[in-house]
Write a protein that binds this DNA or RNA. Structure first.
Length: 187
DNA sequence: AGCGGGATCCAT
DNA sequence: TGGATCCCGCTC
């Protein structure tokens, strides 16, 4: 019978980023907004490995924009891209490290009325906006949880999308997704 | 104070 | 393949 879901604790996020990224696949993202709970299953993510990673925003140093990404783990780093779409990241590792995981696609589970494949569309469907910048992801109304209906799956690792400017970092296999999942944003 | 670019999406 | 659209970071 349904009971209180197992919310992922802060220590889950305070570990090596690619490990967290892989383990985040298959977990549920829950966001309560306007009295309704929206739920999606994480099927595609990208790891951004800190100041040394030329594709990571923190490679530009500490600025007002990157402050949250340099902050404590288990918080949201949300930003605007191309003037119109918001992207959501989960901050990882101890505060000051500057690492995070970009959420690229969800499989709809509950109350998701629009597309969830692609980082911008995912935020739109989940109701995530710039107002959520820096929010604690270990909150009652905004958190990740174990999936009670979890099924086994294989993980595919590929280069990240849209970071061709990042030199050798552009080629590293830091994009992870569920093999064969229909909601992954691109093959 | 001004300028150019960007972890996207969609129509053509 | 290109246009929309605007915040941020850098330069002047």
């Amino acid at each position: 019978m349904p009971s209180t879901p197992k919310i992922l604790p802060r220590r889950f996020f305070s570990r090596e980023t690619t490990q967290v990224a892989r383990e985040l696949l298959g977990k549920l993202l829950l966001h309560s907004i306007d009295g309704e709970q929206r739920i999606g299953r994480v099927v595609e993510v990208e790891a951004y490995l800190g100041p040394a990673d030329l594709a990571a925003h923190t490679s530009k140093g500490l600025t007002p924009r990157t402050r949250a990404m340099f902050g404590p783990p288990g918080h949201a780093y949300v930003y605007l891209v191309y003037g119109m779409h918001t992207c959501m990241n989960v901050v990882t590792e101890p505060a000051g490290t500057g690492t995070a995981i970009l959420l690229r696609a969800l499989e709809p589970v509950q109350n998701l009325a629009s597309k969830t494949s692609g980082p911008g569309l995912l935020c739109k469907a989940m109701g995530i906006t710039l107002q959520d910048y820096g929010r604690d992801l270990c909150s009652d109304d905004f958190h990740f949880a174990e999936d009670p209906a979890a099924q086994p799956f294989n993980i595919v690792a590929r280069p990240r999308i849209g970071v061709d400017y990042a030199g050798e970092w552009a080629h590293k296999p830091l994009r992870f997704y569920m093999e064969g999942n229909k909601y992954v944003s691109r093959k």
